[in-house]
Design a protein around this nucleic acid. Structure first.
Length: 486
RNA sequence: CGGGACGUAGCUCAGCUUGGUAGAGCAUUGCGUUUGGGACGCAAGGGUCGCAGGUUCAAAUCCUGUCGUCCCGACCA
């Protein structure tokens, strides 16, 4: 690799292409999204990072409400006895559950699990609330933290404690539960696409990748720049498994006592990690406008005998705020170039420069973060009285442009292959999403994993009849995306 | 949890091989000059070297343990 390539563009972070991991960690820390804490595997979400989370919450919450859900909150602690009722679920989560064993000095007679997810405690409560088919469906979402005793952690992608939302619903009929599961998968796909500007593949998880205790698990999968896939949200059809374990029964219209059908679905702050990796560049973050804590930052340029730009910037910022924009004036005592680099690193979509020349002419300079330095489209001179409308147009354009870039990357790194050797080669080299007709057999998947470390990310319907599995030659039942996962 | 690396000032690191109680750059603070892509001058402050033991007259340096971080695998949102 040439020196030019390994030379950082900004001093805080290494080039993205040279070492994605180092770039990612540096950006998360230097952009002040997170800080490591004295607690192993747990990060502090700093105000700027929390701003990202709040925007995720805001958009998703609107979508949840629009699909008929309400928010509620359930306890953090789960008595051991309750957790043990759903066998597969326990087995799946047992290795990563943290336990509370003492209250003050007293040893507890029954240990309490710190929730790794809330199917259990919510199922127990639903059992109390449901008597009749008239009580169904229950459509509840919870914004919460959960804890999983992870061995290796990275900001957002995997931390022991993390923030997420978990939706839990109960229905009278299997068909209704399945529809709910798919509806929420679509909500996630739309959020990823339209808000986070992250294109994903939505599909069904293979049996080995299924949520412990679920009948069917669906996911959205994003592709990272290193060719690895990141599961960004899941939606589970739990069938009657949890209803039977936790006794969620009701009397149906036909006077028969039946078990309910439940679903659960979740998106965590891992989605933020996907967004960071997909859009960032050598200068740092590039945050899609809809997710950005700040839409734009004013950088007033002052001279020793002329600081009019500061007051003018504050005035323009105030009117933008009134119009609903999230803006800030950076009037710190620093060089303009220093501020440019800083706000580039933090990924603010638009920078608004205002100097003496602009004050005289009644202009500002809009600079878009998604374009390279020196790109002819990077800067535009805009009259102050058109600022709000031009800013809106620019933000829309940046949102669309970031998505288009990410989409182009995903498409150019998705390979529909029909040749066995090519399939294995693509998987092994982490080329991206490798899309093949697949037999659906666990043994086949395990073999591919052993050979290439790639697994099925999710599956989608087969488009031709009579196709054979590209990996093993058995009759194919679905198409599957294979990739190495995060 | 396996393999590898690391932990010295806010950050990046030097010093450790050949023990003698700490250095650089950047950052920070003050004053002045500057300000359209990471400014400059002068002055100042800041660390007992992750933590705990051990060896030694003496430990950042040698030994043991432990905690934590990063990378590569196995597992998960």
């Amino acid at each position: 690799m040439s020196d030019a390539l390994v030379q950082p563009v900004v001093k805080e972070i290494p080039p993205k292409a040279a070492d994605l991991s180092a770039w990612y960690t540096a950006v998360c820390l230097k952009a002040e999204l997170v800080s490591y804490s004295p607690v192993r595997g747990c990060v502090v979400l700093r105000p700027y990072g929390y701003g990202l989370w709040e925007n995720l919450q805001k958009h998703l919450d609107v979508a949840f409400k629009a699909t008929g859900h309400e928010n509620a909150y359930f306890p953090l602690l789960i008595p051991e006895g309750l957790l043990l009722k759903e066998a597969e679920h326990v087995e799946g989560f047992a290795p990563e559950v943290a336990w509370v064993t003492h209250g003050g000095q007293e040893e507890l007679t029954e240990r309490l699990a710190i929730r790794p997810t809330s199917e259990v405690i919510i199922g127990v409560m639903y059992a109390q609330w449901v008597e009749s088919y008239r009580d169904l469906p229950i459509l509840i979402n919870q914004w919460a933290n959960v804890l999983r005793w992870e061995k290796a952690t990275r900001p957002f992608l995997r931390t022991m404690e993390f923030l997420w939302q978990e939706g839990h619903t109960a229905h009278a009929h299997a068909q209704e539960a399945r529809e709910e599961t798919l509806r929420m998968l679509e909500v996630y796909e739309e959020f990823a696409r339209d808000v986070a500007a992250v294109p994903v593949y939505a599909g069904i998880k293979s049996a080995s990748e299924r949520f412990p205790g679920a009948v069917e698990t669906y996911s959205i999968e994003a592709l990272m720049p290193d060719g690895k896939a990141l599961q960004s949200a899941t939606s589970h059809d739990l069938g009657q498994n949890f209803a039977k374990a936790y006794d969620i029964k009701f009397v149906d219209a036909d006077q028969q006592i039946k078990h309910a059908y439940t679903t659960s679905w979740g998106m965590s702050w891992r989605m933020l990690g996907a967004m960071i990796m997909v859009h960032g560049d050598d200068r740092g973050l590039r945050i899609p406008p809809k997710m950005a804590p700040l839409h734009a930052v004013f950088v007033p340029i002052v001279r020793s005998n002329d600081d009019r730009a500061v007051a003018a910037s504050h005035e323009a910022a105030a009117s933008l705020r009134k119009a609903g924009y999230r803006v800030k004036v950076d009037d710190r005592d620093q060089q303009p170039g220093w501020k440019y680099a800083e706000w580039d690193l933090r990924g603010v979509p638009v920078r608004i420069e205002m100097g003496p020349r602009d004050v005289d002419a009644g202009n500002v300079v809009l600079v878009r973060r998604d374009r390279a330095k020196g790109d002819p489209d990077q800067k535009a001179i805009v009259p102050l009285d058109q600022l709000a409308q031009r800013l809106q147009a620019l933000l829309d354009e940046i949102q669309a442009s970031l998505y288009a870039q990410a989409k182009a990357f995903l498409e150019s790194h998705t390979f529909a292959v029909s040749d066995r050797d090519e399939f294995y080669a693509k998987c092994k080299s982490r080329a991206g999403m490798v899309d093949i007709p697949w037999c659906g057999r666990e043994a086949c998947e395990a073999h591919v994993k052993a050979e290439t470390s790639a697994t099925t990310r999710n599956t989608h319907p087969l488009d031709v009849v009579g196709a054979r599995c590209v990996a093993c030659g058995e009759p194919a039942t679905v198409r599957a995306y294979f990739a190495q996962s995060y």
